[in-house]
Design a protein around this nucleic acid. Structure first.
Ligand SMILES: [Zn+2]
Ligand SMILES: [Zn+2]
Ligand SMILES: [Zn+2]
Ligand SMILES: [Zn+2]
Lengths: 146, 146
DNA sequence: TCTTGAAGCTACAGTAGCTAGAGACATTAG
DNA sequence: CTAATGTCTCTAGCTACTGTAGCTTCAAGA
């Protein structure tokens, strides 16, 4: 059995994060020692490692919750899991597209500035007027992350 | 003078967002009508448009705050503004790199699954074991967005 | 056995950038 | 004048944590 600190080091997850995952029900409530400290099994380490890896790939905690519950029913078909992964892939692709166009715009902006006074700064000018942009680079409404 | 609704429509910003920007001091406190409703000048519209455009390019509100205060001193050299833009560009480039490697991993995962039972699902398997990944795609610590 | 320092506990507050809702007041078109 | 729409303040909520305060417990050395 591992203490929370060892579990955290083993999985690469910070202690408060582990407690947070327990609090939101992503990890089951840990067993406790006589002195009320959390104790974790090997299985808990696997689960946390799964979570950490999925987070590293950008999945939301909600998606991870679903994936974990799917992985508890190994005989079911995996279509649902695959669908979650595909959705994540397309989300990432969407963000990539958007970031690529932001990059183009920012590069243009920075390159066009001659470096004089603020009054003549192309950066400030372009920020004030989208019609000076080359692309549409639309504003997103719902953003999650990384 | 514009009411908050007209200002919002003109700039493409939702009403609560405008009030939020005022609350955090990104927009100055608006003048009020006899009936206590906010009234905005053309200048306020320009400022909000600037904010919205910069947000659309992924700048944080803090960066925008700095850019706005720089643009109030038109005779200063623009190096500071350019530095903010360059920092934003490199942030975007960092995210692009990361997202590109996530995309590779996710594509691989999805492609390798033959679509059987969960027990044999490549998606679930890879999520549980990073050594099955082709790249490092490191977990970030501080994520902001889009 | 005693002591000390590290590790763990709970609970709450804070981060970014909004968004949504309740319940009251203002403005405007017909 | 009335009804519909717009706006007001205030509060709480979202994601995924992170940090703090003020305690208790544990492990190792003397
Ligand atoms: Zn410049
Ligand atoms: Zn633009
Ligand atoms: Zn599968
Ligand atoms: Zn991996």
């Amino acid at each position: 059995m591992l203490t929370i600190g060892k579990l955290g080091r083993a999985a690469g997850v910070k202690i408060p994060t582990i407690r947070y995952y327990e609090q939101i029900g992503l990890l089951p409530e840990a067993e406790r020692s006589a002195g009320n400290q959390r104790l974790y099994s090997r299985k808990a380490l696997d689960r946390l490692t799964f979570i950490r890896h999925a987070r590293g790939l950008g999945f939301t905690l909600e998606a991870i919750r679903d994936l974990l519950s799917l992985s508890d029913t190994p005989d079911q078909p995996c279509a649902a899991a695959d669908a979650i992964a595909k959705a994540q892939l397309s989300e990432i692709e969407k963000r990539l597209t958007r970031l690529a166009s932001l990059k183009v715009e920012l590069k243009r902006m920075v390159a066009q500035c001659a470096g004089g006074r603020i009054a003549d700064c192309r950066v400030i000018e372009v920020l004030g007027d989208h019609s000076l942009c080359a692309t549409d680079h639309d504003h997103p409404q719902g953003g999650d992350s990384q």
